[in-house]
């Protein structure tokens, strides 16, 4: 098995690089290594180069420089696409085809054995909750329905790697929940997931690793929990420890009374508070439980992009 599902070395894309056109750098020496068993969130403001990166990985566009590998194979290896599922941003399908006809064409292209095609198509339509529209023409579908069919064609071949470009766009809240469940199901089945999204809360919920791209440059990349810095902690005080609660209440930045009579207190990082809790815990080991509070991915994202902006100005 390959060590990295996606690997890029100095991957660069400059649009209009022929001498008579204005050069528009979209991606600048991207170096990315995404290990196996990952749900990777690829983030960035509009125009950062996320879709360009995905199109380079899918060999839809050619790099100006550098190289990229997907599942250990160069991106221009047609055979590797049999192991990949791809959902483009704003999928477009032949409007005159019915949903099951389109999926049948995809099944043929993916070399799914003929005896398994119909069954697999029925399965994926069931997963994306589009079974009742199997015989409807794609041209009559709404944005959300088209997105669901897009997801269906992406998972049709039970891919090793799922690449999703803005998969949540166009979906209603139920559709978003369904897709998040599908992604988690795919992860449980051993599929690696690489996806771009602007909905940071969803990325934070399901991703193990994230990378943030800004103006073609990779600002940061790594394990999500390591990247988000600790801004404080929560202390859940069990009932019957009012003395401790009174000692801590003055320093708490937030407090919530729990249904069982206990308290949920939030604190900024404070050595004094930690000291009080540690000494109380020595005598009453099960009186309190502490949890770190990390900055949100959204806060981290804005911080990184702002830093990048300041560096560029300098």
């Amino acid at each position: 098995m390959e060590e990295y599902v996606i690997k890029t070395e100095n991957l660069t894309k400059i649009y209009g690089h022929l001498f008579w056109k204005k050069k528009t750098p979209s991606l600048d020496n991207l170096n990315l290594e995404i290990p196996q068993g990952t749900i990777f969130g690829f983030l960035g403001p509009n125009g950062a180069g996320k879709t360009t990166t995905i199109r380079l990985l899918m060999d839809l566009i050619k790099p100006t420089g550098g190289a990229a590998w997907v599942l250990g194979r160069p991106t221009d290896d047609v055979r590797v696409k049999q192991r990949i599922g791809y959902l483009p941003d704003g999928p477009a399908f032949s409007p005159y085809l019915k949903a099951n006809e389109f999926l049948m064409i995809c099944a043929k292209l993916l070399k799914i054995p003929s005896r398994d095609r119909k069954k697999r198509i029925a399965e994926v339509l069931e997963i994306v909750k589009m079974s009742e529209h199997a015989n409807s023409k794609l041209g009559g579908f709404s944005r959300g329905m088209t997105q669901r069919i897009g997801i269906a064609q992406a998972i049709l071949n039970k891919p090793e790697l799922l690449i999703l470009d803005e998969p949540l766009i166009g979906l209603d809240p139920q559709g978003r929940l369904d897709l998040m469940n599908i992604i988690e199901m795919q992860k449980e089945a051993g599929t690696n997931v690489f996806f771009c999204s602007h909905i940071l809360s969803d990325v934070e919920r399901i991703c193990d690793r994230v990378g943030i791209l800004c103006r073609g440059h990779l600002l940061c990349c790594g394990i999500l929990s390591d990247m988000l810095s600790e801004t404080g902690f929560r202390a859940v005080i069990h009932p019957g420890h009012d003395v401790l609660m009174q000692q801590l209440m003055a320093d708490a930045t937030g407090s919530t009374r729990l249904p069982d009579g206990g308290w949920d207190l939030a604190f900024a990082s404070s050595e004094k508070v930690k000291g009080i809790i540690s000494s109380y815990l020595e005598k009453n080991p099960e009186s309190i439980a502490c949890f770190p509070i990390r900055e949100s991915l959204e806060d981290y994202f804005f911080r990184m992009v702002a830093q990048a902006g300041h560096q560029e100005q300098q």
Binding site: L60, P88, A92, S94, K111
Partner: peptide, 17 residues
């Protein structure tokens, strides 16, 4: 038309040269 609308892109991301 297929190139402009993105239909060709969907097909070319399958194992189709």
């Amino acid at each position: 038309r297929e190139l402009r609308e993105g239909v060709a892109a969907t097909l070319l991301t399958k194992p189709l040269g």
